[in-house]
Computed example of a mutant assay.
Amino acid sequence: MKKAILLIAFLLSFSALMYSQEIKKSASLTSGKWRIESLKIGEEKEDLSNCKNSWMVFEKDGNYQLVIRKTEKKGQWKLLEDKKTIKFENEGDDTNGFQILKLNDKELLFSTKENDVVYTMTLKK
C-alpha cells in the first residue's frame, strides 16, 4: 500500500512539473519582442544581429508580428506543446509546422523543411 501511495505521489508531482514547464514555454514565447539574429535558408545564412529593424512578437491572443528590415507580416500562431512546434497560418509544412529546436527566456530557435529546403530562424531577447 505504501508503494502504491509513493507511486501515485511521484506520478502527480512529475505531471505537475511537466505541466509547469509547458506553461513556461508559452510564457517565454509571449514575454516581449524577440530580435532576429539570423535566418538560414538551405545553406545560405543571413546575419541580422546588427539590424535593428528585424524582430518578432508573439501575442498571448495568438497574433504575431514579424518585421525583417522594412518588410512586415502579421498573422496567427499556435504553440503545439506536445509536438514542440509553432504553427503559423499558411506558413511552413502544414503537417509539421516549425519545430522548436531551442526555447528559453533568452533564445528561440525554430526550423521547418519545405521542398527539401530547410528554413531556420534564430531569435534572442
Rank of each mutant, 00 (worst) to 15 (best):
K78R: 08
L79S: 04
T30I: 02
N50K: 09
K87Q: 13
E72A: 14
A9Q: 03
Q65C: 12
E81S: 09
S26R: 15
I68R: 05
K73N: 11
L11N: 07
S54A: 09
A27H: 04
I68A: 06
Q65W: 01
L39T: 12
K87W: 00
Q65S: 15
K84M: 12
T95A: 13
S49C: 04
R69Y: 01
K45E: 11
G92V: 10
E22S: 01
E91G: 06
R35G: 06
G97H: 03
T95V: 13
L29Q: 07
D94K: 12
D47N: 06
T71C: 01
S49T: 10
G62D: 15
N63K: 11
W55E: 10
L101W: 06
S26L: 10
D94H: 04
A9R: 04
K87C: 06
K78L: 08
K45Y: 00
S54N: 05
I36Q: 12
T85I: 14
I86C: 11
R35N: 13
T85Q: 12
S49R: 09
G92Q: 10
I100L: 15
K70A: 04
S20I: 05
F88G: 10
N50E: 05
S13L: 14
N63S: 15
K73A: 07
S28Y: 15
S13T: 11
L80C: 01
Q76G: 00
V57H: 04
N53G: 03
W34I: 11
